[in-house]
Amino acid sequence: MPSLAELFRLGQVVVLAATLPIAVIAARGYRDAPFGRVVRPLVPITLAYLGVAGIKLLEPSMGVDASRVLGSVAIALIAWTGIQAIVLLSGRRAL
């Protein structure tokens, strides 16, 4: 009988696995547009979070270190997304 925490982790894996193709669609849709720089990081962010949730579910022993590394990557990419949005919308980058 899986614990509630394991069920939550399984839920994270399912949600993020479903999010991945949607992120690919968004990135592909905006691939030639300036806004693509904002949307493109969604794919690696999803992969990083999926990696964190998957490792915690399947290999809890290496979960702490792996989740810290991959979580840091995801957060750095989210920060990059925010910077790209600010740069684009503030007019600092030409269209």
């Binding site: 509630l4 925490a5 939550f8 982790r9 839920g11 994270q12 949600v15 993020l16 479903a18 999010t19 949607i22 992120a23 669609i25 968004a26 849709g29 905006y30 949307v39 969604l42 962010i45 999803t46 979070y49 949730a53």
Partner: peptide, 19 residues
């Protein structure tokens, strides 16, 4: 872990709104 699941759902919703 429940809160992280909620975060994943919010992220999925954001991605969907873009896509």
């Amino acid at each position: 872990e429940g809160i992280y699941l909620l975060s994943a759902l919010c992220f999925a919703a954001a991605t969907w709104l873009f896509a």
